[in-house]
């Protein structure tokens, strides 16, 4: 089964994303900070189909995690979607330029997030 990985310091967001993943038929792995997220990515590199990455977290921020993942040849192929309260155009440009495939601002509706996940994984149909 394809897995999603949510890296977010908010337990609520991780739970919401786990619920949406379940609806889409994906198991969801969780990490509460960037370092833990990178470790989980390394451990499950062949199973994870998408990373949902928060921007503002204690320790490494999301952009640093993204850059670190993209610099690692073992995990750089795994698509990353930013999930963040930062909706400014400049943030989105930075994330896409750093290798994020998609970007979802918080708050989000369940339907919105579900369709963004499918799009990010190339399963959206459009």
């Amino acid at each position: 089964m394809i897995k999603l990985l949510t890296i977010d310091d908010s337990r609520t967001i991780r739970r919401v994303i786990s619920g949406i993943g379940a609806m889409l038929g994906f198991e969801v792995l969780e990490a509460e900070n960037g370092a833990e997220g990178l470790a989980v990515l390394g451990e499950h590199v062949h199973e994870i189909g998408l990373v949902l990455l928060d921007w503002n977290m204690p320790g490494m921020n999301g952009l640093e995690v993204l850059k670190s993942a993209k610099a690692n040849p073992r995990i750089r192929h795994i698509p990353v979607m930013m999930v963040t309260t930062e909706g400014e155009r400049d943030y989105i440009i930075q994330a896409i330029q750093a290798g994020a495939v998609h970007y979802q601002t918080k708050p989000f509706s369940q339907e919105e997030m579900a369709t963004r996940i499918l799009e990010a994984m190339g399963m959206g149909g459009a």
């Binding site: 339907e111 499918l118 149909g125």
Partner: peptide, 14 residues
């Protein structure tokens, strides 16, 4: 929307 139809056809809800 093709994306919502993917979810609809799967018939799976949380």
């Amino acid at each position: 929307s093709p994306s919502v139809l993917v979810i609809a056809a799967a018939g799976r809800y949380n």
